[in-house]
Design a protein around this nucleic acid. Structure first.
Length: 615
RNA sequence: GGUUCCGUAGCUCAGCUGGAUAGAGCAACAGAUUUCUAAUCUGUGGGUCACAGGUUCGAAUCCUGUCGGGAUCACCA
């Protein structure tokens, strides 16, 4: 199904026939011919120059002449410097388009009988989702889709961090200041409701801490503990954690609540369940708006004790070692990492232990070949260590582990900081982009005749496309700057621009009716440049999907979709489709448009973006 | 400090398994519609691809170093 391979094969044959030289597929380079030269594809012949000791021009012309005579699909060539530009026949383009139309689910691969588990989102239950989560969720979701398109059986999952001191903080704040309020009684979305109590805790704690700083005890502490030259504010900032653990009343209460939770205290558990249920209702509403879902869920409250058995096994295998104080470690210095603790001296586990156990649990649950973790790049080192440990433990899936690492999202004003209230809330953002779509749409009036709910559905699709495309078009590993103003742009390199290409195609399909000859297009001759350009784009789609899967990189699909849409808009502008010069041209262009529409739809689906039929 | 990622136009980003004169979008300016959706198209201006070496016929792309920015280096998660 690799169309480019056919062309490459011709070249390989030519080299063999003309120069008795065997070259491999991988060491020949074929590119699309740059637009300022004649031709469709370009072979670079410099690599042959050295071996053959002939001039590039001579080699190019020899190969070109051979190709014209022996390869019917090649009808012209031109050698410029070390480049052989070949022109392909109309028949080649028509055949290519025919093959594309006949290929079921063009661009995707058949099932490969391999299972991959993709983890993404994985929020904490003490705060609502924000912009950072959105990048994570879009990447994870898109990656799942892309892997599925590459033949994998994909299981989408997340581990919900539903326990720990942070969760206890919001519980405690609700207990102390909530007066029995609920999301229902206040009409506040559940996750925001709970998040507000987390913030309330932090506010109260801050007050308490400030009072402490002014108390005799605090003054003495500052006098005795502060290092010379140290800024007073910085001293307290650094002391905050210690204060929380050793002096704070609120801190003590929160910690006590955590202990109660861990010992299974019924009242605590019941409050915890109630509040988490509120959060999940809120999260699910956000997931719905983002158009994502999960096949399985892991809760940290179930997994946080996992991994201890793995540590036992690892000790026996010699992967880990026990220190005199009883703590267990792994030494990874031989591969350039350091020593990491996997079990504390009191026998409790750390994050790493939990992750080892969870990985094993997932393998037991699903028997996967691969696992993808969508987690921000601040945890690069953690995953390097985790994967190395799992490898040493001899886990069967160890070679299939991948950390889908992505850079943080910054605002034009700098980093998002919850303390400074600059965190962009996911729900607010979604609402904002849809409102912007509404504004843009009202200026145009294209959809005003539709029923209200249909209009809303379209506006939702347009707004979400703007937001999602803006985020997903950036390579995951790159840190990105999120400018809210730009994210709602709907012109140029944006989601709505691509949707617009699709919508134009749907409009043509509606108007075309049935008077188009079904196979008339195969008789079309003398293809126009924009038509060839479209077929060229279509034909690389399967490679783009494959590559995106191998690289875990949705941004390449986003760029492809943009380029295809751009080529279509150009085509649409340059040639008449339904009013074409001939019936053959009309049939051909309709067919071509339809295929472009299908590919745009598929590409956007792989990105988790919906297409409207009108806009 | 060690490790690691990033640095391309005023701004946001492509291009990175080495190939021709480094591309888009935004912003600015000038145009295009009696005709399939103008959320479109065409054009103009805008570059020391952070810097310096190296490898190569050829480097934004690979290697080394320097500078700048981020992350990370807990018996935290």
């Amino acid at each position: 199904m690799d169309f480019l391979k056919g062309i490459s094969a011709s070249y390989i044959n030519a080299v063999k026939a003309c120069f008795q030289l065997e070259i491999e597929q991988q060491d020949l380079s074929i590119n699309e011919t740059r637009k300022d030269f004649n031709g469709d594809f370009t072979f670079v012949i410099f690599p042959l120059v050295k071996q053959l000791k002939k001039s590039p021009l001579e080699i190019g012309n020899t190969l070109g002449n051979w190709l014209i005579v022996n390869e019917p699909k090649i009808v012209g060539f031109e050698t410029i410097q070390g480049f052989l530009n070949v022109t392909l026949s109309d028949k080649f383009w028509l055949d290519t388009l025919k093959l594309i139309t006949e290929t079921l689910a063009f661009g995707t691969q058949p099932a490969n009988n391999k299972k991959v588990l993709v983890e993404f989102s994985s929020p904490n239950t003490n705060k609502p989702l924000h912009l950072g989560h959105i990048r994570n969720i879009l990447l994870g979701w898109s990656c799942s889709k892309i892997l599925a398109a590459n033949g994998y059986d994909v299981i989408k999952t997340q581990v919900i961090n539903d326990r720990g001191i942070a969760v206890c903080k919001s519980m405690l704040a609700w207990q102390k200041f909530g007066n029995g309020a609920t999301p229902e009684s206040t009409s506040v979305k559940g996750d925001h409701f709970v998040g507000d109590f987390y913030v309330r805790f932090e506010t109260e704690f801050k007050k308490e801490f400030e009072l402490f700083q002014k108390s005799p005890q605090g003054i003495e502490l500052l006098a005795t503990q502060r290092k010379a030259e140290q800024d007073v504010d910085i001293f307290w900032k650094e002391y905050k954690n210690k204060y929380f653990n050793e002096y704070s009343l609120l801190g003590a209460e929160a910690k006590e609540m955590l202990l109660k939770w861990e010992s299974g205290d019924e009242d605590t558990k019941s409050l915890w369940q109630t509040m988490n249920a509120w959060v999940y209702t809120g999260f699910n509403a956000t997931y719905d708006k983002l158009g994502v879902n999960f096949d399985s869920l892991y809760y940290e409250s179930d997994t946080y004790l996992l991994g201890k058995k793995a540590v036992e096994d690892g000790l026996i295998k010699g992967v880990f070692y026990r220190q005199d104080d009883g703590s267990v470690w792994v030494n990874l210095e031989d591969v350039g990492m350091d020593r990491k603790i996997v079990l504390r001296s009191d026998g409790t586990s750390v994050y790493m232990t939990q992750d080892i156990g969870t990985a094993q649990q997932r393998y037991e649950d699903f028997g996967v070949d691969k696992m993808v973790y969508t987690v921000a790049d601040e945890q690069d080192y953690h995953f390097k260590v985790l994967f190395e440990i799992l490898k040493r433990l001899g886990e069967p899936y160890a070679e299939g582990l991948h950390h889908l690492s992505y850079g943080m999202v910054d605002l034009p004003t700098g980093k998002m900081k919850s303390r400074e209230g600059t965190v962009v809330d996911a729900d607010d953002l979604v609402e904002e982009v849809i409102n912007e779509a509404r504004n843009m749409s009202s200026e145009r009036g294209e959809i005003t005749a539709l029923p209200k709910d249909e209009q809303e559905d379209i506006l939702r699709k347009i707004g979400m496309a703007a937001l999602k495309f803006f985020i997903i078009k950036v390579q995951p590993k790159k840190r990105m700057i999120f400018d809210p103003k730009e994210s709602v742009d709907m012109q140029g390199q944006t989601g709505p621009y691509i949707q617009n290409a699709y919508v134009r195609i749907q409009s043509i399909k509606r108007k075309a009716g049935k008077d188009i000859l079904e196979d008339g297009w195969t008789m079309y001759v003398d293809l126009e440049e924009p038509e060839k350009a479209l077929i060229k784009h279509l034909l690389i789609f399967p490679n783009v999907v494959k590559e995106a899967g191998e690289q875990y990189d949705p941004s390449s699909i986003a760029n492809f979709a943009y380029n295809l849409a751009k080529a279509f808009h150009r085509f649409y502008h340059d040639v008449r489709i339904l009013n074409a010069e001939t019936e053959e041209a009309k049939a051909f262009r309709s067919k071509l448009s339809e295929e472009v529409g299908k590919v745009l739809f598929t590409a956007f689906d792989l990105l988790g973006i919906e297409m409207p039929d009108r806009m």
